[in-house]
Design a protein around this nucleic acid. Sequence first.
DNA 1: TAGATTGTTAATCGATTAACAATC
DNA 2: TAGATTGTTAATCGATTAACAATC
Lengths: 211, 211
Amino acid sequence: MGEDKKISMAVIRRLPRYFRYLYDLMQLDIKRISSKELSERMHITASQIRQDLNCFGGFGQQGYGYNVEYLYNEIGKILGTDKRFNCIILGAGNMGKALASYENFRKRGFDIVAVFDVDEKKIGTKINDIEVYSTDKIPEFVAKTKVDIAILTVPNKKIIDVAKEITSLGIKAIWNFSPTDLRLGEDVVVENVHLSDSLMVLGYRLREKDY
Amino acid sequence: MGEDKKISMAVIRRLPRYFRYLYDLMQLDIKRISSKELSERMHITASQIRQDLNCFGGFGQQGYGYNVEYLYNEIGKILGTDKRFNCIILGAGNMGKALASYENFRKRGFDIVAVFDVDEKKIGTKINDIEVYSTDKIPEFVAKTKVDIAILTVPNKKIIDVAKEITSLGIKAIWNFSPTDLRLGEDVVVENVHLSDSLMVLGYRLREKDY
DNA sequence: TAGATTGTTAATCGATTAACAATC
DNA sequence: TAGATTGTTAATCGATTAACAATC
């Protein structure tokens, strides 16, 4: 295949946002929308919306605009919300527990199939019906269950070793909640969350406001 | 005052990253570093590093490079890590609990001073030594304690009302964990975290890899 | 001093916005 | 049909990279 237009990350990162706004429009029973109306709701230019959408093909109709439900479904397909991904969480601390309990991920196609931790007291317990296993069992688990994504909520000092183990088992996607940037070669995709960074930027912007 | 150079958000968002790398260098007992060496570690260009740092003044020395500890402290000052911020968490669910328990925020100058929830069973309990109050008590609490930042981990359907209440009480910064984008006027700064968006982008990139 | 490396200006690149012809 | 609004090309803007003179 290879629809080689080379779509920029800036565009990709806006897709979930379009997806959310279109969902909200559906909830409001709005059937069609023009790029102009949508631009006012989203606070971006109509031009950018049309430009973004045309990276993937023409979803609209001249003189009419876009059919909300159709566009929602098309963006969903691009984002792969019609596919399912098996995810494991490494680290059953507070953040691991919070993510395992978050129902929204499942709705978006991401199933948390297991949680792993080193703490004997946690092993064998369940979080939101998901079993907590010993980290020793990761290779065994990955061998018998297809795992698409590893969600890493381990302490920062362990992150490098854990990331290496995970990738050596063939897992190709990592959602990283540790402050350390992960970079694991060409064929492993990583999304770094970096909550502290986000909070520090908020602090900066708050102080800037009244300089 | 007003050092009006108008620093772009792209630069601001890189500052915490510099801060982290410089901290790591200090841990490794590295005293000085050139933009070239740092660029190799961070996988950005040396040019960009020098350009970024010069938005805030000359921290380096020709022929020598940058003193790691000095630069770390200066970026810390820019980011305000020498200041303290009082934060409240609204919503004592799993994510609220996880954030309240995360010790790293305190190290960066962010103190969680209270958690609020509507659930009678949670009110009066403590999360990591932080008291959980009824949401009814927010106005009272804000009146007697300076609150800089509200961290919102409430269910999505409540987010708009909660955000409005919070801003009506004079809080000027919101760290938003709900999927809904918040926009509350010129004088309220908002950082949206949008975990689902991040995960969806990860899913997209994973599928892209082998098209 | 000579070598190294910054600070800063200029060139390039990419992303956003504007404009408008195509067309529903 | 006339009006509206897309798809798409062209213009602008901003951010990144390159180059080099200043200087430690």
